[in-house]
Design a protein around this nucleic acid. Sequence first.
DNA 1: AACTCGGGGTT
DNA 2: AACCCAGAGTT
Length: 345
Amino acid sequence: MDFADRLCSWFSENMRDMPWRHTRDPYSIWVSEIMLQQTQVDTVIPYYERFMKRFPSVEALARASLEEVLALWQGLGYYKRAENLHRGARYIMEQHGGHFPVDPAALRKIPGIGAYTAGAVLSIAFGIPAPAVDGNVMRVLSRLFLMEQDVGQAKSRPAFEEKVMSLLKGDPGVFNQAMMELGALVCTPRKPDCPVCPVNGFCQAYKRNTVEQYPVKAGRPKPVTERYRVLVICRSGSYWMEKRPGEGLLAGLWGFPLIGEEQWRLVEPMLEKKRILKRVCHVFTHRRWELEPVLIEVSESCGTLPIDFSVPADLGGFQTPEQMQRLPVPTVFRKVIRQLDDAGA
DNA sequence: AACTCGGGGTT
DNA sequence: AACCCAGAGTT
């Protein structure tokens, strides 16, 4: 039995059940792969179920509004993925008559499909031998072959893709998924379970007892802390929310106005009804927000606040709790809303 | 090549 | 607290 035989036979007996493993429909595989980018399987599953129920086909997704797609995506993170998925559906309708191209170069032109996702769709949906190299696969390969390339660097990718192709045999979709499953269940980042690994006989790092020295990866800088006051402006039971700018962090999502300390010092003395809520902390990959929410009650337009209440309704407005529920509001602002609820507001 | 872009699970 | 996750796009 060679490497692929052992790997795939282990996979057939140990693979987890996932909704997208019951189909080879390219649209279904595409949606799952986009959601799974930098996101763990158990986190994705409920989002995937809801998404496929609402948008069962490329046509259905292409017809939808971006707002509705973002609303289903809220809480999943990396919201550009949702925008690209939506754009991609319209692109596939217009450029390919609603059918997925079976060609690698054509797939790569679809927004949001990069080297990994193209390989995943080609192999899983179409059975084409193509490398699908994600973080799991790089870790497995680096241990198998003592690969010293930094897995965080783009220039390392070709070496990993070559190794995959040298091992690939049988059904490419099964093989690629088996490699990822091995990385997720056995060849884990810390404390890998080498004694039960079906391919430990092929693993050079296991042979030398250096498994935990792989993969090689440069460290990340710590998130930078930013502090803001959050203006939670209440007018007769509704709350002021704004659509964030189209670029940058949490682009296009809805939230409360954030102001720095210096601006707060100008506004704070002029406010009558205010109430400081419990601090909210939220960590992004490279930033850490420490938020101090301030509940402010106003009757009419409050000129002392640095807010323009006369913007178009699609850019900002007073929202009832029910309306807030339907808007795409990222987790950090949901945390603020939670403090509001806890405070009995 | 480096930076940006979320949120949550694990250890 | 550190690390990682079925990565891609921009600069």
